[in-house]
Design a protein around this nucleic acid. Sequence first.
RNA 1: GCGCCCAUGGCUCAGUUGGAUAGAGCGACGGACUACGGAUCCGUAGGUCGGGGGUUCGAAUCCCUCUGGGCGCACCA
Length: 554
Amino acid sequence: MKKILSKSILAGVKSSVEKGLITSEAYSSSLKVYFEIPKEKKFGDLTTNIAFVLAPIAKMPPRKLAEIIIENIPAWPNDVDRVEIAGSGFINLFLKPRFWHKVLRQILAQPKEFCSPAVGRGRKVNIEFVSANPTGPLHVGHGRCAVVGDSLARILEKVGYRVTREYYINDAGRQMDILGRSVFLRYCQELGRDVPFPEDGYQGEYIRDIARDLIKERGDSILSMPEKEAISLLTKIAADVILHQIKADLTLFRIQFDQWFSEKSLYESRAVERAIRYLQKKGWIYEQDGALWMKTSEVGDEKDRVVVRSNGEPTYYASDIAYHRNKFQRRYARLIDIWGADHHGYVNRIRAVARAFSVSEERVSILLVQLVRLMRGDTPVNMSTRKATFTTLSEVIEEVGVDAARFFFLLRRFDTHLDFDLELAKKQSSENPVYYTQYAHARLCSIFREVEKRQLHLPDPDLSLLRNQEEIQLIQKLSLYPQVLIEVAESLEPHRLTFYLIELATLFHKYYNLYRIISEDGDLSSARLALASATQAIIADGLTLLGISTPAAM
RNA sequence: GCGCCCAUGGCUCAGUUGGAUAGAGCGACGGACUACGGAUCCGUAGGUCGGGGGUUCGAAUCCCUCUGGGCGCACCA
């Protein structure tokens, strides 16, 4: 519907240009007219700032420009009641209610199409997130990354991208050795050997659990193996056990991955070597002091970074180069990496890799998700990873539930610090925003149950009966839904959908308190139920994209 | 010391290519249906958008600077 209005305005610009009233630079085929729904009724139903956008190009005051444009609009659709120029150049459109009735009719006729604006055009997107080392359980910080990534993936898919959700498993390198050694030492201790446990070992109780399980399954047989072999075996076993647990936690959190990519496989396939050799040939990697360095300073890093140490051991960065090369080669239109904000020092390293492989920067987005501080009321919950006194993600989910946990993570922009209050998340009251939107959905369901119960036989809806301001406002809000999804896909900010849904629920709750949806008047009831049905469909669609359940009753 | 992120009512936060009088929720106070679910709704109070400078028709939004907080600065991952 808005397209028609947009066309009218563009035609006005074009016609003004043709008549020589404004300079020809003002019109181009890529020119886009954005409409907003103004906060205040007196500014109309839709408004556009096109005159402000064109003012610098046309070198003309916006007000004057607005006048010229609307005078030269060949024809308005007849749903337009009147047009006003306000302020210093806003073009405000006042529409007849039937414009909004048409919008609602469209939503009801093709709800699926309406909720799936096809802007992705089948392009491939890879979104890599969580990717926690398999050395310990997931914590709340991982949880936030997980939910942001998962909701983005759902939304990108919804708007027509082909999405691969990928988890990169750091199953190679020193941390793995330390893991294996930690398990080995706990295993020895559990069998009564008096061996010291190092500072840098993994202190968590889960290491002991793995050791105990090993004893149950294999007794002390591992002690008789050569130590190196034993540690290598335990590394593999421990990583498997922990990864298994991570997958279970993610499943519980309603998160599924399409691809689990092993770091080790990059070494086994010699992809790491090949990538390094390639970059050496291209001059991006050079040798100095016996080590190999990547020229990350070329993209603004403070200094170059080591890829292979002088002792011949590759660093983590080496496999990361090969990994990103691999992703580039899989021909995604877009790569998204989601990291905890504590990794921001690595952004330049990945940018360097992109540059080195001639991948344009817009194709690679790195989202830094700020860390989470877990609170219980006003007091922070102690979170020492080293001592493993932290609360795990699964404990949080168990305490507050999946819906509340996901909702809280999506309630703020991901680049702001988040205090996650366990007490608040648990509360089933108006303090807790989680239930507000779900309640709107449940309430809508209950209305339709009521229709069933009363066995009402209603006529086909005549939407022109929806004349109240609140009804028009509700339709206006519904009409924005696809635009919100597009905005989320462009900005990669899923919290916008969360806020939209809360606002939609607010409008519905207000409407519900003001008017009877089911009344003696069958015609009116039918029209209002149609509006209710569209509202329900969009709340349900949106909640699903956030990975939050849509209860029919609460 | 260097780099990245953040700063908006008492609290927690929105604010879409820079746009009209900066918006919600919570908390506080006062109210609402004999009717489709009161986990709801209505009203009141609360702001020099951290300070200062700049860019322009116009800045919470862009630039500079200062202050305060978070994080990162390894031949660790």
